[in-house]
């Protein structure tokens, strides 16, 4: 009999991944705001300063552009930095470095320089922190050629995606959803690596495909449970990799279920969900038995009041309703 797998929080999984990375490669170091003495604003890096020292756990001033750019420069000069940005809204102050430098330099230099940099960014809504700390802007980054964009939704991905990202010669953005940090799950000791190229089917089904990522995946899985009680067998795809998108996995599921609901916490207009829907329309149109459906964040700056924030975010009931409308059109 195998031992029961240890249970771990998503936060602890992120930390173990960081600790592994720091132990494995002397070129790896961490940079970010309050990651050291404060312990990280979501406590992901708590304790790492004591373990690895100030050279490798670098508290930065509030200069997103400078320290993200410094991460890029250091990566170009042979290091393997991991930069943390507290919240995706703050990453906007580093957009210049991410979009104009990290994403362009390998190509612009004719392949002379790679940018093997990892940027971890907290994202998403649900913590009642209103319109400057709650948005899901990862879809914007998924627009940019030259970046790889990851969204771990499970404890397993939180534990193992980082190592794969560090091996990648390209700049990799990892979006950690703030509602997931406290999620606990058993970690399969047999798994010690994950790929960062493919979407994954988290629940097999035949009646309808629900596509989500990050906390949207958790909600899609909850919706699938509701639907199961009604005899609707939903398949749930965890996108995992927002760029480059794993279109084949999506299309294969469409062939199977012929109905699709895309869940995206980001705003609907010009969103990642729009891109996925369009790919299905372009490449899987004749496999569909019903129109495409999306459940997205409502198009408002995130409100503070709990009832309003809940209404602004995709909820399992919304997802289930959208799926129902495809399976049993009224």
């Amino acid at each position: 009999m195998s031992e029961a797998a240890a249970t771990l929080t998503y936060r602890e999984a992120c930390k173990q991944a960081l600790r592994d990375a720091l132990k494995a490669d002397p070129r790896t170091f961490l940079m970010g705001e309050d990651i050291g003495r404060y312990g990280g604003c979501y406590a992901v890096t708590k304790g790492l300063l004591e373990e690895f020292g100030e050279e490798r756990i670098r508290d930065t001033p509030l200069s997103e552009s400078a320290y993200v750019g410094a991460g890029i420069g250091a990566a170009m000069a042979g290091m393997r930095p991991i930069v943390e940005i507290m919240t995706v809204n703050f990453s906007l102050l580093a957009l210049d470095q991410i979009v104009n430098n990290a994403a362009t330099i390998p190509h612009m230099s004719g392949g002379q320089f790679a940018v093997p940099l990892v940027i971890r960014i907290a994202t998403g809504g649900g913590r009642r922190v209103a319109a400057q700390h709650s948005h899901s802007l990862e879809g914007w980054y998924a627009h940019i050629p030259g970046l790889r964009v990851l969204a771990p939704a499970t404890v397993e991905d939180a534990r193992w995606m980082l190592a794969a990202a560090l091996v990648d010669p390209n700049p990799v953005l990892i979006f950690e959803h703030i509602m997931l940090y406290n999620v606990e799950a058993p970690l399969d000791p047999a798994v010690t690596a994950v790929d960062i190229a493919h979407a994954k089917i988290r629940r097999a089904g035949s009646g309808v495909t629900l596509i989500g990522y990050g906390n949207g995946l958790v909600k899609a899985l909850a919706a699938a449970e509701q639907l199961a009680g009604e005899g609707v067998d939903a398949e749930v795809i965890d996108l995992r990799v927002l760029r480059p998108l794993d279109t084949p996995t999506i299309l294969a599921s469409v062939v199977k279920t012929r109905r699709v609901v895309i869940v995206d916490e980001g705003w609907r207009s010009g969103s990642l969900s729009a891109e996925i829907g369009m790919r299905i329309a372009e490449q899987g149109f004749f496999d569909l038995d019903a129109p495409l459906r999306r459940v997205c964040g409502r198009e408002v700056p995130m409100p503070y009041a709990p009832h309003l924030e809940d209404a602004a975010l995709p909820q399992p009931a919304d997802i289930a309703a959208a799926a129902r409308s495809l399976v049993r059109p009224t």
Partner: peptide, 13 residues
């Protein structure tokens, strides 16, 4: 845009 990069190159060195 080059200044942060220069800081990073120097940091690596």
């Amino acid at each position: 845009g080059g200044l942060p990069l220069a800081v990073g190159v120097a940091l690596a060195d």
